[in-house]
Each structure stands twice: as C-alpha cells, then as structure tokens.
Amino acid sequence: MTDAHSTDPATESFVAHRNLLFTVAYEMLGSAADAEDVLQETWLRWTGVDLEQVRDQRAYLVRITTRQALNRLRTLQRRRESYVGQWLPEPLLTAPDVAEDVELAESVSMAMMLVLETLTPTERAVFVLREVFDVGYDEIAAAVDKTPAAVRQIAHRARKHVEARRPRTTVSAREARAVVESFRRAIETRDPQDFLDLLAPEVVLLSDGGGIKRAALRPIVGSDKVTRFYLGGSLKAEVTVTTELTVVNGAPAIALLVDGELDGVMAMHVEGGRISGLYYVRNPEKLAHVTAETSLALR
C-alpha cells in the first residue's frame, strides 16, 4: 500500500486483520498461494463495502474471506482428485512466535492440516472458524449461508470427526526439536540404525512430488520400509545431500538440499520421543513459502 492510502479506513482495517485473514484462508485451503489469492479477492470486495453500515469490521472481513475460500476449496477438491500421488499442504516457514503459541501451532501443523482435509468444505469452514478462531455461531452462519442451528449441528459433527483423528502431542517443543535434530544428523550420516532408533515402529511417511519430483505414490508404513525408502532411493549416494533445521507450520522441520539446491521440506509429528509421522514435500510448486517467514494470527 502507498502512503496515499495510509489514512484510508478500509485499507487500515484490512492491513490490521491481514494476518488473521490469511490464517483463516490457509487453514481452509492448505495452500498459501490460494490463500493469497483469496486475500486479493477479499480486498477487492472490501473496497466496495460501505463501512458506515459495518458494525464489526473484523467479523465482516472474516465472512468475506470464508466465502471466497469456500468457493475456491470446492474447485481445489476437484483438482486434487487428479493430483499425482500424495497431496500434502503447502509448507510455511513460520516465525518463532507461532511455535510458542500452542493453539496456533497445532492448528497449522501438517498432521492437523491433513485431518482437516478429510472434512467436507462446509464442515472444514465451520470447524476452523469455531474451534480455531472462536467465531460465534451467528457469524459463522452468515459466512457459510446456513442457519445457526444447522451450524451447531455441523460443528458437532466436524468436532467428533476431528477428535477421532487428530494427532496427540505428547512431547514438548524442546523435545520435538531434539528428535528432529537427531533425525537431521541421521539423514546426513545415512546410518540405518540411527533411522530405526528415531522412527516409531508404525511410522507413516507421506511424500508429495506432484508428478514433478520422485515421491512415493502411496503412504509408506513401518520404520523398516521408511528407512529403506530414504536410504535406497530417495537420497541416493551419488548426490550430495545436506540438511538445515528450520521451522515449518509452527514446528521443527528439515530442509533438504541436493547439490546445494533446495530439494524439499520434511515436517514431522513426534510422539513419545519418536517420529510417528513424516511429511515430505518435494513438489517445487509448493516450496515458495519456505524461504521467507509467513505471519499468522488467531486474533
């Protein structure tokens, strides 16, 4: 925005709530690029609103964002049906304060975002607005074009669905970081036993190459199979693999560089001191937001 717009009330309000609106859109879509497009659409509609008729500008902006995100989500779901291999959310390099906010970090974690993928578009919108952002039922009803009574039923159904599938956090952020750091060293030393010591017996690996980079087309389950996948195919000896510890979606993660170029980002879920979920994003079209921090907000 230019200085000429700095005193414009519509611009000031939009900028003040931008991080919140982006977070709403991202949690609904799992794609930072699409969330940015939704924000652009929200801004265009917001500039045509008579602010004198708006009692709660935050609620109104969230309503516009939700409607635009819902429209886009329905389109994205059709595209994902033809996606090559596993589809994973677009990873975000997040600021340290996101990791410190337990509620926010859990809501944008890779594991949780994948749970949200199992909801219908309307269920996802209702769950995100109610459970993550604490939006009132009347406001949600206006955003999703349902009655408050219907929204309560949808929220109850979505909550039960998520509770049955949501990952459980059993370690502190410090413990998780220590496990991720140990796994980073295991990747570089390529010692199979180091892998096996850090992976839970029933660890699940999901890898996303988008048909552009090599990736497993189906989930790989079990510490032995995951170890063989990395050491036998994913990270071949003839290339130089280096790693960097980073923070993705509010949790410690690993950036992998092959011959000095970013090859992918590996997020993970840690339970009981071991890695139970590995999420390896190699699709280059999804790596645009891992080189600069993305600001998120719940309020």
Rank of each mutant, 00 (worst) to 15 (best):
R78Q: 13
E285F: 10
T23V: 10
Q68L: 06
I220S: 04
R124Q: 07
L287A: 06
Q193S: 14
L114H: 03
P91G: 08
P219D: 11
E293Q: 14
E100K: 12
E261M: 11
L287E: 05
G209Y: 05
E100D: 15
R58Q: 13
G210K: 03
V54L: 11
A158G: 01
R159L: 11
A297W: 05
L104P: 03
E139M: 07
V180L: 05
P192A: 10
D50A: 14
Q53C: 07
N71D: 09
L196M: 13
E163C: 00
Y280C: 00
A186I: 02
A186M: 06
T227A: 00
Y280P: 01
L231M: 04
P284A: 03
E117Q: 15
R74L: 01
R218F: 12
F133P: 05
L93V: 02
L93K: 12
I140S: 08
R190M: 12
P148G: 13
R190T: 13
E188M: 12
T246A: 15
E41F: 01
Y83T: 06
T7K: 09
R282W: 03
D145Y: 06
A16Y: 11
K286H: 08
A164F: 02
T242E: 15
A33M: 09
L199S: 05
D224F: 10
K146R: 15
A176T: 09
S107M: 04
V38D: 02
E181H: 12
R218C: 10
A173T: 13
G211W: 06
E181P: 00
R18P: 01
V108L: 06
D191S: 08
L296V: 04
D194I: 03
P9M: 05
G209L: 06
R184H: 05
K146E: 15
G136P: 04
A176I: 01
V102K: 08
F133R: 05
P148I: 09
V221K: 14
T7W: 09
L93H: 04
A176D: 15
V15M: 12
A251C: 07
I275E: 03
V84D: 15
E123D: 14
G232L: 04
E202K: 13
A59E: 14
E36L: 10
T47P: 00
